[in-house]
Simulated scan of single mutants.
Amino acid sequence: MREILGRRRRLLSWRVGRKPDQSPALLAALTFATAWRWPVLPGVGTDDQVRRGLGALDTLGTRTDRQSDTRKRSGRGARKAARGTGAAELRGAPVRCACPDPDCAFPGAHPLDPGLLAATTDERMVRWWWTNRPGAPVLLATGGRAPCAVSLPAVAGARALAALDKAGVRLGPVVATQARVFILVAPYSMEQLGALLYAKDRVPGSLRFHGDGGYVALPPSETGQGQVRWERAPAPGSATPWVPDVQAVVDAVVDALTRTGVSAPEL
């Protein structure tokens, strides 16, 4: 219990010495929440991100006791080494989630505190979250009036997108990580999805569906799977991005994967 509480304190005290308007994550979260009306919340982040946030506190001089000064001097080399490895991974060390689960399957890319139900479009809440945790991943709470998503492994996803382009299928924003591709779609119900999948002769097991009660990390988040990026970015300065109907996407993706034989292994 002591270790869990300690990790929680580090998470809640995650700060860096930058103004809120200098945080790319804050600017992105404000766009999603206030301009596009997509409910968002901060992800838990990785253990390395939390540690580097605490290091920035020392740099600001908020810990002024003698022991803190000694720690700053002795830890300077370690912090430089950490910066050189990238945010997601320390040199030679596995990426570890900042949550209490040592075997977390989605390091940094899930909610913890606050929980998923706290997702909001309220500007003041969004500013408070990312002012206190400027490097936290930005999570979209899928479903309801917000977009949902259909995802598939990265290799199959890249080939499926090429097949969809060739077939002239119109897509909205597409998010990608090193591991998966997420095609944003219009909100759907579980009944609608069930009927859609039931009508298919075969649905690749590598497809995942992110609807009510789900979430997707949005750019410019950095998680245990690396940098989250736009594979197909929304038009700059646009209003709420258009997203396609889930049936059109699933029909085209299943057809492309089945016809071209690029379906990824069952996951």
Results as ranks from 00 to 15, higher is better:
48 D>C: 11
83 R>V: 08
51 R>D: 12
19 K>S: 12
28 A>F: 09
212 D>T: 14
201 D>K: 13
106 F>D: 14
152 L>M: 15
235 A>G: 01
225 Q>M: 12
110 H>E: 05
37 R>G: 07
93 A>Y: 10
41 L>K: 01
14 W>E: 05
44 V>W: 08
159 R>T: 10
169 V>H: 07
58 D>Q: 09
243 V>A: 02
91 R>S: 12
253 V>E: 09
145 R>I: 08
112 L>A: 13
195 A>L: 14
170 R>D: 13
258 T>D: 12
8 R>M: 09
2 R>S: 12
32 F>A: 15
53 G>K: 07
184 L>W: 08
173 P>V: 05
233 A>G: 08
155 V>T: 14
142 T>F: 05
204 P>I: 04
82 A>S: 15
108 G>H: 12
179 A>E: 14
228 V>E: 03
34 T>P: 01
149 A>D: 02
130 W>N: 03
45 G>C: 11
47 D>L: 15
129 W>F: 10
197 L>E: 11
166 K>I: 04
256 A>D: 09
133 R>S: 14
221 S>W: 05
169 V>N: 02
177 T>P: 06
153 P>R: 11
263 S>V: 03
129 W>V: 03
236 P>K: 12
2 R>M: 06
171 L>V: 12
184 L>P: 09
174 V>D: 07
62 T>M: 11
254 V>H: 03
264 A>R: 08
86 G>L: 11
152 L>V: 09
70 T>D: 14
162 A>W: 04
248 A>M: 08
158 A>N: 10
155 V>C: 00
211 G>L: 06
267 L>R: 15
116 L>H: 07
209 F>V: 07
223 T>S: 06
139 L>C: 04
134 P>C: 05
126 V>W: 06
35 A>P: 00
63 R>K: 03
188 Y>R: 10
73 R>L: 15
166 K>Q: 14
31 T>R: 15
